[in-house]
Design a protein around this nucleic acid. Structure first.
Lengths: 149, 149
DNA sequence: TAAAATACCTACCAAATTGGTAAGTTTTGC
DNA sequence: GCAAAACTTACCAATTTGGTAGGTATTTTA
């Protein structure tokens, strides 16, 4: 039930880019240094973010990365899905075919709802919220309102 | 962000024992067969549950396992903590000392609140609820009420 | 009292994942 | 043409995951 460094570093990198939205292209070495993450390891995470359309990269001298969209258009859930894969806690929530005993399974609803709870929470936070430190439980939990409770 | 087979099998084993609460001691081979989980692998998971005081075991012929407590006294959260370790999605939520940049960290509150959301959800479901198929989103999400929202 | 059924214990193992490092190649601005 | 930058490919060690194998200790019952 852990989130690996891939997802965490990706988020930190994007937050750093969001902080420097007005600075044009930011070279990776600067992100690496200010976030204290190995440049080589970040290079490995970046293709995941690029494929998701999160980054605008520029090659060559004075190149670097910047956000491809406004910071309000990224949710933490999206970033984690791009880097960690699905947020579902078990495989049979994504594709029920994987499971040989899903019918009559008493535990599957737990995982299915857990996935929903986690997704609702993480999809309710944008990169801009993270930047603004606008992340507190009172606000976050309010997603329950949307479920009509 | 996955729950491993350890936690899932443990939960299924306990549900099976809850179903047979009136049957006295249930031998492992029966649990293994009816849940279709390798007996040898279950043997490896059982010490985690025993250490947590979840099981009452009896050696010898006509021995086996049964629940040590009423099914209402186990929460899914407890079972997962006993088998998977902490439910926290990142290490620095449990002990902040692990983290060299927690002060000023913009992402840590996300993980901290996520841990709380997950725990509130999983601690709100008892083994008896699982047995009764009393697990649906409308009911589950109501934990938000307890947070004064 | 012996046999059978049971939990319990110790070792081992293969595959995948995690968290990186190393050494280049290509593109571009100055 | 040089230097800075992204990009690519390859490698690697440690840990976790998901098991299997084989044996020992304890208890009931026939």
């Amino acid at each position: 039930m852990k989130i690996s460094t891939r997802g965490r570093y990706a988020l930190r990198m994007l937050v750093e880019l969001a902080r420097r939205q007005e600075s044009g292209y930011v070279p990776l070495v600067e992100i690496s240094e200010s976030q204290n993450i190995s440049k080589k390891y970040l290079e490995q995470i970046i293709p995941l973010l690029s494929r998701a359309g999160f980054l605008d990269a520029k090659l060559g001298l004075r190149g670097g990365y910047r956000l491809a969209k406004p910071a309000t258009d990224y949710t933490v859930g999206d970033v984690l899905r791009a880097t960690e894969g699905s947020l579902a806690p078990v495989a049979c929530v994504e594709n029920e075919g994987d499971c040989d005993h899903c019918d009559g399974c008493r535990t599957q609803p737990i995982w299915k709802n857990l996935a929903e709870v986690v997704a609702k929470y993480l999809d309710g936070i944008t990169l801009q919220d993270v930047l603004d430190r606008n992340v507190d439980l009172e606000r976050d939990i309010s997603f329950a309102d949307g479920l009509g409770i």
